[in-house]
Every structure is written in structure tokens, then in C-alpha cells.
Write a protein that binds this DNA or RNA. Structure first.
Lengths: 336, 336
DNA sequence: AAAGCTGATGTTATCGATAACATTTGTGCA
DNA sequence: TGCACAAATGTTATCGATAACATCAGCTTT
């Protein structure tokens, strides 16, 4: 009766194949000591019944799940969303499922509750998109023995980290503007407590200093078009500003609008370079020169670092840096 | 020895509290028949040990997991990404974890493999962001008895569906343009096989017909700024085009650029209305009038429909429609 | 030919929870 | 006072897999 409704278990397969359930388990786990003929018979029984191993039972006895938890602050932003999607694909290929845990704020209690939720599920490992030092600090509760990989985290934390080479990206952007003949480059950064922002600021400043140029005051904003606009309104009134490097494309969008309202032409009067290369950056007015980050590579690198820890291979890399490269469009063309 | 490393189980709590493990289980599940004093003692033991119930064990014996699978096509787009994030929050509040499964393509085999992955995990239910009829068709493999909710799916499918009122949104947009004095409104739609596109087309067409206006030929594109630009280049050359309603904000962005290049002023020469209200829409040049969808409401509605099915309450709603409303900005102001 | 492997398979214990049933304790009422 | 019934708690079976150990052929090896 209830045999029909219940989904088949290993013993059902065993009965049909005329073997013990342990042999079925061996076939499933590719254990060598199974006769080829038996293996085939078991496989046939599995297919016939549409058998599907119960992960809960497996997790219970082995003590490990095939689940990776991802903690993200705001998976609505282009970067995190892309990363999450890419990561899920990579994890699936490696036989892992991905459980997400978004958090609205970075305070300790929200972070802890997300981590708790993941621990409840007995995730095998955690990937944390931790953009700020405070996020890293709020994660103090993560047990030492749980494998973790940080994306964009603090390289000095001792935990494995995957980062985009923000410094090099920012250098390329700044260099490009100087090479186009600008005297100096202004920078509108993201929130200064973000690692990403810090790297971009550093690359920008270094490049100016190495070229012996004046370093204008740093302007910082959140990542939104809205703050870009407000900052842009100010910059648009300053005739000495001829080149602006912004920490992301949405800031750049706001700045472009402020410049346009003020009648300052881009790139003729002011050149603008963004960061991210969101899909629509090519259709801003004018099309945006920006720095592209290889999010797919970041996701795959994070997975490989995590799998390295799961396999307790002590010798795996602790830090991976993924390059960023300049994409030149009209907002800051190759030459003025 | 190994007591230290192993995370505490229910029996450990029971021993410390001086009760049986079953009593611990009762406390955990808020069973009424537990003396208050015992309850307190057990709670204290739980806290003291940092005990955390093993979901795998629970899932094994109850036969149901506290896991909801989400199938999304492209969680990088603003809509799906926002929805996913909101959904995760809502699910967490209800004690459910969320496992994501993205697919790059909508073909049958990718869809099936995602569903398989979720079934392997014994998800309690599935939420499918199925934007096209083909996606729904590709999901034929979902077992009849697995609770499923579609977001943006086909209302005629018989499965519970949550949709945004695309028709009403499109009507509001079109109506607004007509009210501003335009003779007719051109529409650049998304891919015509998307339910969203179909609803928006329908609302647009209805409104024009009811007003006795000429219905211009339908232009359709994918959702990208890139195709918006190409379509915009064509529209910009047609002096009779004075009002354009686009199926999303990124298309609108491409069109704005094409119009700008051609020297057609927005909104003076051509008014433009988008759809989505992405956060940066207010900073397009000019700021975009658009239709906002309440993605958070969609996510919560989907969750409630799903939980309704899990609780086998037969009488729950089968379809929820979430409103959309017009946000007026400069690309199509209140009056010309 | 007996001892000793090794490969193939089966048996039983186990993970950590809930379900079902059993037992003890407590309370109201005739 | 004692009986009936409810409340509180304990005992044992169970879910479906893997781990550990046991068994049993069929081969070497000396």
C-alpha cells in the first residue's frame, strides 16, 4: 500500500537486484570490490525504481553534508548577484548544493543569525562575501574548524581569501586618464570601510604619486547612483576637474547625469572612468570606460579554495587574486 | 576524548538536564505537556552546551526537510536577484533555508538537472521563477506531489502562481503618456515568449484601443540596453514617434542614448517610460519615469502560497497578483 | 594439501532525531 | 478514600544511509 507513495530506499533497490543494501551502497560510492555483473544489475534496479539516495540519511551517518553556505550582504548589487550565480553553477558541477543567506545589515547580530542558520544546516563550508572589516569582525563566531573562504575579505585575516586585484584595476584606470593628457585625476570612492574601496583608493593614489601629480582630496560615497549624482553636482562646478575615476559604474552614472545637467561634456570637458562593467555600461551617455572584474573566475577560485580545505589538503593556496582589466569606451577614450 | 570534538546531540542535553532525550525533543518542538520547570532546565542545558538540533536527523525521521529550492533562470537581472534576496529573508523568518539553482539556459535538460539537484536534497517545496512558457513546459518532470509555486508563470497552468500585475502596470504607463497629450505610444517589448512581456504588450494595446488610438507596430527586443540602443536608433529617425513605453529600464537606457545621439530631446521631443524601477533609474539622463514592481511582496506571497501547500490546507489561494505602480520622473513628466 | 590472501558479499551497529506506545505522577470528584 | 482521567515523562522502534566487521569462495604459496 504505502510502498507506492513512499519513495524507494536502498533496501528496495537491493531486493530488486537480489543483493544486500550494502552492495547497493558500494555501487553508489564506486567502491572497487564489486563484480561488474552485479554493478550492472544494481544500476538497472536503481534506474527501474527511479531511486534517489537520501541525502539526509547520508549526512547523518557520514557527518558531512554536500552543502555550501553563502553569506552575502546585498545580493542585489551586480557584483554579488553575479558571483552568487556563478558560484552556484560551479558548486553544482562539483556535486555541492548551495544555500544562500542574505543579510540586510552588517551588524554583528544579523551576521551571527545568518551564520547560525547555516550551522543549523550543517553546511560543509561557508563562503562569505565580506566587503568590510566590520563584516569580518562580526563573523568572529564562525567556529575555527569550519572551512571558510572569504571573497573580497581582508587578506591579513589568515583565512583563505579570493580578491579581485583592485589596486591594479585602479592603477590601470588612473594611468589611462593620465596618459590621455589629464593633469590629475579625481576619485569618488565607495564607502571607505570596504576593502574594495580601499584597494581602489590605493591604486589611484599610488599612480598619481608615482607620476608626481597632485593628489586631489578624496571624495567618498556609498555605491549608489544617487550619491554619485550629489557628488557630481559638486564636481561639475569645479572647472579644474577634467578627469574622474569612480569606484563603480552606478556612481559614474550619477556623475554623468550631474555633468550633463551642468552642461559639461563627457569626455570633451571631463573624462569619466567607472568600475565593474555592468552590462548596461556600454549604453550610458556616453558609453562608459570602466574596469571589468572577472566574477566568474572569483567564484571558481573561491570554490576551489573551499574544496581544498574540505579535502584537508594542507598545502593549498591561501589567497587567490583575480585580475581586473580596463575596458575603453567613449567616456574616456584612448586619446583626448 | 572525542566528546570534545563531536558536537553535542540531544542525549547530551538530556543527560545534563537529567531528563530523557524525548523530553528534550518535546521542549524543542514546543510540545504542551512539559512542566515549566523542566522546560527551563532543558533550555538551560541547551544553552550551556551550545546544542543545535541536527537537521539531517530530523529530516530523516520526519520525511520532510526545512529546505525550499528556488529555480531561477538568470539571477543576475535586477528582478530575479531582488526576488531571491527577499525570498530568502522571508523564508528564514519562517524557519526555512533556501537552496538556489540557477540555470543558464531554459532548455529541458538544464531545467531537469536543476530540478533533480533539488529533489536529491529532498526540498520540501520549489519556487520557480519561470518567465516563459517554454520554461514551464521544461518543468514537466516535477513530481505532481511536490509543492510548487511559480513566479511570473502561466496563470492557466493550474499550479499556484504569483504574478505582478503587468497589464495594469502597462496600462498606467500608456495612459500616462496619452494623458500627457501624445497621439499614440510606441512599445518596445521584451522577448515575446516571456509572460511579463505578454502582459505588458496586452496592457499597452488595450489602452490604445480603448482610447481609439492607432496601435503602432510592436517592436520587440531582449531585455538588454544593447538592443534598446539598436531599436532606439531606428525610432530616433522617425519624427512621428513622440512617446515610447519600454518593457524594462535597461531597454529604456539604450533608447535614451540612441535618442540623445540623434539629438532628440527627452522629454521635449520624445517621452520615455520604462518598467522595473531599478535603483539607478532616477539617475538616467533624464531621470526615468517607470513602473515599480513590489518584488518584496511577490517573494512573500510566493512563500505564503508554498507554506499553504506544505500545511496541506486545501483551501489556500491558487493565484496572487501583486500590483505595480507608476513612478513619474522627468523622462515623461506629468504634463508636456 | 593446509595455510594465507584477496575479492565479493552479507550482517550488524550506528548516526540523531521523532513517533508511538508505556509508565508514572498528579488532580478532581463521587 | 479511591477511582478515573489527564499531565508529565520515559522506552523502544524507526527513518535510510555508511562503517566496521564477518563470512565465504577461489587462488597462491610452500
Amino acid at each position: 500500500m504505502d510502498r507506492i507513495s513512499r519513495s524507494p530506499a536502498m533496501t528496495d533497490v537491493a531486493r530488486l537486484a537480489g543483493v544486500s543494501h550494502q552492495t547497493v551502497s558500494r555501487v553508489l560510492n564506486d567502491h572497487p570490490n564489486v563484480k561488474e555483473q552485479t554493478r550492472i544489475r544494481v544500476r538497472a534496479a536503481i534506474a527501474a525504481l527511479g531511486y534517489r539516495p537520501n541525502r539526509a540519511a547520508r549526512a547523518l551517518v557520514t557527518g558531512r553534508s554536500q552543502l555550501i553556505g553563502v553569506v552575502a550582504r546585498n545580493s542585489t548589487l551586480y557584483g554579488p548577484a553575479t558571483m552568487l550565480s556563478e558560484f552556484e553553477q560551479a558548486a553544482a558541477d562539483a556535486g555541492f548544493a548551495v544555500s544562500v543567506g542574505s543579510v540586510r545589515e552588517l551588524d554583528r547580530s544579523s551576521m551571527n543569525s545568518v551564520v547560525e542558520r547555516h550551522l543549523d544546516q550543517r553546511v560543509a563550508g561557508l563562503v562569505v562575501i565580506a566587503n568590510t572589516a566590520s563584516a569580518v569582525a562580526a563573523l568572529a563566531e564562525i567556529p575555527e574548524d569550519l572551512p571558510v573562504v572569504f571573497i573580497d575579505g581582508d587578506p591579513a585575516s589568515g583565512r583563505p581569501v579570493v580578491t579581485v586585484d583592485q589596486v591594479a584595476g585602479a592603477r590601470a584606470a588612473t594611468r589611462h586618464l593620465l596618459d590621455s593628457g589629464h593633469e590629475t585625476v579625481w576619485h569618488v570612492s565607495g564607502p571607505t570601510d570596504w576593502f574594495d574601496s580601499a584597494g581602489r583608493i590605493q591604486g589611484w593614489r599610488q599612480t598619481l604619486e608615482e607620476a608626481g601629480r597632485e593628489v586631489p582630496p578624496l571624495l567618498s560615497a556609498d555605491w549608489s547612483a544617487s550619491e554619485g549624482y550629489r557628488t557630481g553636482q559638486m564636481l561639475a562646478r569645479m572647472p579644474e576637474v577634467t578627469a574622474i575615476f569612480t569606484a563603480n559604474d552606478h556612481l559614474a552614472l550619477g556623475i554623468l547625469r550631474a555633468l550633463s545637467e551642468r552642461g559639461r561634456r563627457v569626455p570633451h570637458d571631463v573624462a569619466v572612468v567607472g568600475f565593474d562593467d555592468v552590462p548596461e555600461a556600454a549604453y550610458f551617455i556616453p558609453p562608459l570606460t570602466t574596469v571589468r572584474q572577472a566574477f566568474g573566475d572569483v567564484a571558481r577560485a573561491a570554490l576551489s579554495l573551499l574544496l581544498g580545505q574540505l579535502g584537508d589538503e594542507a598545502g593549498t593556496a591561501r589567497q587567490i587574486v583575480v585580475p581586473a582589466h580596463l575596458v575603453i569606451r567613449e567616456s574616456a577614450p584612448a586619446r583626448v
